[in-house]
Write a protein that binds this DNA or RNA. Structure first.
Length: 478
DNA sequence: ATAGGGTTAG
């Protein structure tokens, strides 16, 4: 997308976030000078990702109140993703049916989204059920969608379930090398390298040949499971057999050696790849920079970062975040702030992960005010806090044992629920206890009691839904 | 959005 629509999207996102009155928001959004297009709507939905209720509100206004604009299938997918993440399944199915009535057919992607959110909510059987019912929604299952559902389960570490499902249906869908790679990678991700090898043995017995991706999966599996020398031998064997090893292979080895502190070997492999005619990618640099930060020195990491710039690479937000984290870790907060500025100059963030890193380090260093300052800054900019941000800040509010901090914790708790984030029950109880104690100790109870009662009403509200006790990482929009 | 390589700290 070029700059103009992106800027227009940010302005509109700001307008939606600032609105408090439904009628006036409708009026602003229906203003005839706004040229609504699917990419514009998609961009706004992505920007509102960490404020799900407002995102859905916006989507519904265009859906129900706009006289001519019709949502695209991709905007529906975003809205369904957001509703599913809020565990608002009634809305998910309403939108799904609405898509069909508008003759916008739900695609395999739509079902992949719903399945992924079910799995993240701890309902893998619902995910399988929605996959098996796809054809009832006018969307045929094929090998592609079969592989997708397997991957969704594996990425959420439900590998056993994926494997059982796979065994039942592999004949019907004519499982291919990609299906097996997905399962093997799943086993590797839970450090069961031997199960991965067994699965691949079965694949070969069924007449399918491993690909370079297959080998890269096993290579990574060894390193991930801490089987460094097995990984190294496997890498040598790949070279000896003249597999066309690629940038992914090298990146895996650089990272794998680096995380166990084998910095010299990692650097040697990094230098070797260029000689072999395989150019490092930004991800390769990120791997090297990260391991230098962790196991060597942040100065050496930064010199690799500078070398990367000299060679004409464009660092991405991961690169910056890795450097910033390294600096924070060495208590060089001011320098990490400089790298945040460089991110802005490069038009590459900072993103919510960047803020979470620096906020966490300020808070852990006892500089609560600076953490809160950054939180205010992201809130007023175009970067909305996520669940991690709230968890970091709320737990920080307990360390100083100050009554004012309890009030901030209460305010943050209300705000996060308002934005569709479900706090853990523990968080709820801590904040309530904190406020209760404060109320007993401090004169001028009146204000405290009123925030207290707001919290109680929220508490009821949330208990009637379903308090999330599981800490599944939530994947962002695609 | 059919598979493999970089992002937290616990």
């Amino acid at each position: 997308m070029n700059a103009a629509p992106a800027a227009a999207a940010s302005t509109l996102t700001g307008l939606i976030l600032a609105s408090t009155n439904r009628q006036s928001l409708i009026k602003s959004l229906l203003c005839p000078s706004i040229n609504w297009t699917p990419p514009l709507v998609d961009t706004i939905l992505k920007q509102l990702w960490n404020h799900g209720p407002k995102a859905l509100h916006f989507f519904h206004i265009l859906l129900h109140n706009h006289p001519t604009y019709v949502h695209s299938a991709s905007s529906f997918d975003h809205a369904i993703d957001i509703a599913a993440r809020l565990r608002n399944y009634a809305t998910v199915f309403t939108l799904l049916h609405r898509m069909r009535s508008l003759r916008l057919h739900p695609t395999p992607k739509t079902f992949a989204i719903i399945a992924e959110r079910y799995v993240a909510a701890g309902k893998p059987d619902k995910a399988l059920k929605i996959f098996l019912s796809m054809h009832q929604h006018g969307c045929l299952q094929d090998l592609h969608s079969f592989n997708t559902i397997l991957d969704v389960l594996c990425k959420a570490r439900r590998v056993e379930k994926a494997w059982n499902f796979f065994k039942v249906l592999r004949g019907r869908f004519r499982a291919d090398v990609i299906s097996y790679n997905i399962i093997a990678n799943g086993w590797c991700s839970i450090k069961r390298t031997n199960k991965a090898l067994e699965t691949l043995k079965e694949m070969v017995e069924r007449g399918l040949s491993p690909s370079l991706t297959t080998y890269n999966i096993i290579l990574k599996g060894y390193f991930r499971a801490g089987q460094i020398e097995e990984g190294w031998k496997f890498f040598l064997e790949m070279k000896r057999r003249r597999c066309e090893i690629d940038v992914v292979t090298y990146t895996t080895v650089v990272h794998g050696l680096g995380v166990v502190g084998e910095i010299k070997r990692a650097q040697k492999v990094f230098n070797e790849m260029v000689n072999e005619g395989v150019l490092p990618s930004v991800a390769t640099y990120n791997a090297l920079i990260q391991v230098l930060c962790k196991k060597d020195s942040v100065e050496n990491a930064i010199s690799v970062f500078e070398e990367m710039l000299r060679k004409g690479y464009a660092p991405n937000s991961t690169t910056y975040n890795v450097v910033i984290r390294g600096l924070c870790h060495r208590e060089q907060m001011e320098r990490s702030m400089e790298y945040m500025d460089r991110m802005r100059d490069a038009d590459c963030g900072p993103n919510v992960q960047t803020y979470n890193i620096v906020i966490r380090y300020f808070c852990n260093a006892g500089e609560t005010e600076r953490g809160l300052e950054l939180f205010e800054k992201m809130n007023s900019g175009n970067c909305l806090p996520n669940l991690d941000t709230y968890n970091i800040l709320i737990s920080t509010m307990f360390v100083r044992k100050r009554s004012d901090d309890m009030l901030v914790a209460g305010k943050l708790l209300i705000e996060m629920v308002d934005r569709g984030f479900m706090p853990r029950r523990l968080t709820f109880n801590r904040v309530l206890d904190g406020l209760l104690l404060t109320d007993c100790e401090i004169p001028g109870k009146k204000n405290k009691l009123s925030s207290f009662s707001i919290l109680f009403s929220w508490f009821d509200n949330v208990l009637n839904k379903e308090v999330a006790n599981n800490r599944q990482p939530v994947r962002g929009p695609k």
